[in-house]
């Protein structure tokens, strides 16, 4: 509500306070394209302080092959920020960068490192997924199935692939049901649609996550939290309606974004020399988000 009464900020203060004006948000957003795209969204949810066709940024179908808990144990590279940012974690010097480039071998290695306990966890996961609450799905009268059984032009049904691979992977201690068919390089994994909106009250970007399971069914909020690092899972990630699409989505609350951004930009300045440009604001922001959702493999494309 306060957001509606407040004027949008106009004076640039990203380097001093870690906040951005709507104009700076647009400049920084342009820098993420075309990996991310600007969207206008619904007319009735459009914010007047942003251009009609640049209301928020999206990138879709981003793979997330393993759960945050496994990643944390594997990586252990995050740097705790000191001072008054209790609980916040910054992507470590190597941590953030490697998330993007981390390939499947790493994922496997991490999975192996996690062997025993998480294999059991994966098992539980599967049980949850087994559509137990769907009434009589099995005696569904299928009218079209026989017709399609011998469809020579359809690529092999996933059933055989997934099952044999699942066994293979769980033998190796995989933490998730992410499986890969070696023949056609397809990975069965959770995916996320990510979007970044501008929060006028906190004068920072805000990130929204909408997850799908290995079979592209909506991921319940509880399971989305498995992809959030432990420090943030219960504290700062909430399920709210997306301001532009209305879809319930997991969001990282922006109340601490500005001080964290300020710290990260100072760190970047010390490491690379010079104040970061406003164009790079969202790249730094994504590094910070990578510490909150360490296993979602969105592409940074550019390093700063």
């Amino acid at each position: 509500v306060a957001e509606q009464l407040m004027p949008a900020m106009t004076k640039s203060a990203f380097a001093e306070k870690g906040v951005v004006t709507p104009e700076e948000f647009i400049v920084a957003g342009d820098f993420l394209c075309p990996t991310w795209s600007w969207q206008g969204g619904d007319e009735k949810h459009a914010r007047s302080h942003l251009p009609r066709d640049k209301q928020f940024l999206v990138t879709r179908n981003v793979p997330c092959a393993m759960r945050a808990a496994a990643m944390e144990e594997y990586a252990g590279k995050e740097v705790h920020l000191d001072g008054d940012d209790e609980g916040w974690v910054a992507a470590g010097e190597s941590g953030g960068g490697e998330d993007a480039s981390r390939d499947d071998d790493d994922a496997d290695a991490a999975a192996k490192a996690k062997a025993g306990g998480s294999a059991a966890a994966a098992k539980r996961d599967d049980d949850d997924d087994s559509d137990g609450d769907i009434p009589d799905m099995d005696d569904f009268v299928d009218l079209g199935a026989e017709e399609e059984e011998d469809d020579a032009s359809a690529a092999a049904p996933r059933r055989g692939i997934a099952d044999s691979d699942a066994e293979l992977f769980s033998a190796a201690g995989a933490t998730t049901a992410a499986t890969k068919n070696p023949a056609d390089n397809i990975l069965k994994t959770r995916t996320y649609d990510l979007s970044i909106t501008y929060d006028k009250y906190y004068q920072t970007p805000r990130v929204w996550l909408s997850g799908y399971d290995e079979h592209r069914s909506v991921l319940p909020p509880k399971k989305t939290l498995e992809d959030v690092s432990a420090e943030h899972a219960k504290k700062t990630v909430t399920i709210d309606p997306h301001p532009h699409t209305g879809a319930p989505a997991a969001s990282i609350h922006p109340c601490k974004h500005a001080p964290v951004m300020k710290k990260l930009m100072d760190a970047t300045a010390r490491a690379g020399g010079g104040t970061p440009k406003v164009e790079h604001y969202l790249l730094v922001f994504l590094k910070f988000i990578a510490s909150v959702v360490p296993t979602i493999e969105y592409d940074y494309t550019l390093s700063i």
Partner: peptide, 25 residues
Amino acid sequence: GPAVGWELNAKGRAGPRCADLGASM
């Protein structure tokens, strides 16, 4: 030719899918 194209469900079989949004809606 005859039409094909029903999507397989999470079990890899011909069958419907279910989205349970109770927790968020």
